[in-house]
């Protein structure tokens, strides 16, 4: 049986990184981000990356690590607030940004991972997102053509996985991760809990192991909370 499990994030990425590549990275804000794999990408020094992610994390956290270290040449994202370093680099013209509506972004990734090169969507019609894109009427309504996205590498975070690469996620840390797992030549997953095949009920598996080529266990990862909001006990 092929061994998918690597001893650490750096070794899980061995031979996969090259300058100018496209990396798809899971997470929403800093929730459900593959932070250990991103740290290993930072340490590798690989450059001129195109990063596909919902938003570039926080300053120095998540994809923000690669922004601070100036390894990102282009970002494809739906949102770029909350990261002052990215904003500064973008306004200075040092990094390229392709805004993509969040639903179109995830659908482009879903399509890319499912062998669909392009699809029509109503999102963004009549806005700057539609500039240069083909449009077509269906049933009297205008739609625009969006291209699928398929990366060289996807890095994702899951809560639990077995050594076959079957994955489950925890609450809203799921977000883009299962979709991104399908949309790259190689997907590397970090998991908090690593178990033997059979320990996860097959009915509960969200990402089947076919999509996961390599994995690494990151026990008890530090999880920063971006906005801590609480209510008072009555």
């Amino acid at each position: 049986m092929t061994n998918k499990v690597y001893r650490d994030s750096a070794s899980a990425l061995t031979g996969l990184l090259r300058d100018g590549m496209t990396i798809i990275s899971g997470g929403f804000g800093i929730c459900g981000i593959p932070d250990s794999l991103l740290a290993a990408i930072e340490d590798s020094g690989v450059r001129d990356l195109t990063i596909v992610t919902n938003n570039p994390g926080l300053d120095g956290m998540g994809v923000g690590r690669l922004v601070n270290s100036r390894q990102v040449r282009k970002l494809i994202a739906s949102y770029a607030g909350e990261n002052a370093t990215f904003a500064k680099q973008y306004l200075a013209g040092e990094v390229e940004l392709e805004y993509c509506p969040q639903g179109s972004l995830v659908e482009r990734i879903r399509a890319g991972g499912s062998g669909i090169p392009a699809f029509y969507t109503p999102t963004g019609v009549g806005t700057q997102v539609a500039e240069g894109k083909e449009t077509r009427l269906f049933d009297g309504r205008e739609y625009l053509l969006e291209r699928g996205i398929f990366g060289d590498l996807a890095v994702i975070h899951a809560w639990k996985g077995d050594s076959e690469g079957n994955l489950v996620y925890r609450m809203t840390a799921r977000n883009f991760n299962p979709v991104m797992a399908t949309a790259a030549k190689v997907t590397v997953a970090e998991v908090e809990h690593l178990v033997e095949p059979g320990e996860i009920d097959p009915d509960h598996i969200i990402t089947p192991g076919i999509f996961v080529k390599r994995m690494v266990q990151v026990p008890d990862p530090y999880k920063h909370i971006e906005k801590r909001t609480v209510r008072q006990r009555a």
């Binding site: 938003n55 994202a77 739906s78 949102y79 770029a80 607030g81 990215f86 904003a87 973008y90 306004l91 805004y99 509506p101 969040q102 639903g103 179109s104 999102t123 963004g124 806005t127 997102v129």
Partner: peptide, 11 residues
């Protein structure tokens, strides 16, 4: 002025 993004608003 503002580097933010549409997030899910257009969808």
């Amino acid at each position: 002025k503002m580097v933010k993004g549409m997030g899910g608003a257009m969808d």
